[in-house]
């Protein structure tokens, strides 16, 4: 479990995290959704003991993040863009550095490289890898020590849809294996697809939290249904405004092509709460 209570962090006079409180349960994929500069990466750095903070409390698996021991850190797998790879070393050699450091069997390297689909490139120098391959290797490095908590900072940022899908699959598998996944993203589709619980972060403050579905339903003010008829005509029908009768009529005429409820997506919810776009 990860617990954060009223945590604040500033860089100089700028407050980058302001009174953050949240709980991440075991076996959950927890998403921190927000635009660039919202404080997502800073929060990961705080939780992994890389950054000190001024006030509040934070613990990961019961350990105070201010006093993380070597054994505590062993439970973490961290994938961040600024945690570099050894470009002159092969994928296998890169992972071996870390299995040697942690005292993990080298057998884990082959398994994790197969998991991220880099087993065919194990002996290839990392400098020759594509961006997607490097991201998968970063993920492999986070996984190779069998962590109990995975911190993933924008794990699919800038990747092609196929690689992103593969990474999502790996993340889900680790969740099934009981791992806590703490991920940051500014991609609402990723957040919707992956996360059990979401926190929307803007300018260092939590603006809303809940499951992706809960959030969308909570901000469904319009409560409309959209129907498309066979002649391509689209109609927005309010729940309480004769929608049932109109749908019945179109059905009877045999002209109904599609019917969808019109709850907002996460982007719309975020816009409503902050006036900002997620991708900004």
């Amino acid at each position: 479990m990860i617990e954060v209570t009223n945590l604040s962090k500033s860089f100089g006079t700028k407050k980058v995290l302001d009174g953050i409180s949240m709980t991440v349960r075991d076996g959950e994929i927890f998403g921190l959704l927000g635009p660039s500069g919202a404080g997502k990466t800073t929060l990961i750095r705080v939780l992994t003991g890389q950054l000190k903070f001024e006030s509040g409390e934070a613990s990961v698996m019961g350990a105070d993040v201010r006093k993380l021991s070597g054994e505590d850190k062993k439970q973490f797998g961290i994938m961040m863009d600024d945690l570099g790879l050894y470009e002159r070393l092969t994928a296998y050699q890169n992972l071996k550095v870390f299995t040697d450091i942690y005292g993990v069997s080298v057998d884990a390297i082959g398994k994790v490289l197969a998991e991220v689909k880099l087993d065919q490139d194990a002996k290839k120098e990392v400098s020759k890898f594509s961006k997607g391959m490097k991201e998968r290797l970063r993920l492999a490095r986070a996984l190779v020590t069998h962590p109990k908590v995975l911190f993933l900072d924008e794990p699919t940022s800038g990747l092609d849809p196929q690689t992103a899908k593969e990474i999502h699959e790996i993340i889900r598998n680790r969740k099934e294996a009981g791992c806590i996944i703490f991920l940051t993203t500014h991609n609402m589709t990723e957040a919707e697809k992956l996360c059990d619980h979401l926190v929307l972060l803007n300018e260092g403050k939590i603006v809303e939290s809940g499951s992706p579905r809960e959030l969308c339903l909570r901000y469904d003010h319009q409560k409309r249904i959209e129907i498309t008829t066979t002649d391509g005509e689209k109609e927005q029908l309010p729940f309480a405004g004769g929608a049932v009768e109109r749908i019945e009529q179109v059905l009877k005429e045999g002209r109904l092509l599609t019917i969808h409820s019109q709850e907002p997506n996460l982007e719309t919810v975020f816009m409503e709460l902050t006036g900002r776009k997620l991708e900004a």
Binding site: Q50, K73, F76, I78, D82, L83, G84, L85, V97, I101
Partner: peptide, 13 residues
């Protein structure tokens, strides 16, 4: 510069 030192420090080196 390459961020590998940060990766090592995060791995409790």
């Amino acid at each position: 510069e390459k961020g590998t030192l940060r990766a090592l420090m995060m791995s409790n080196v």
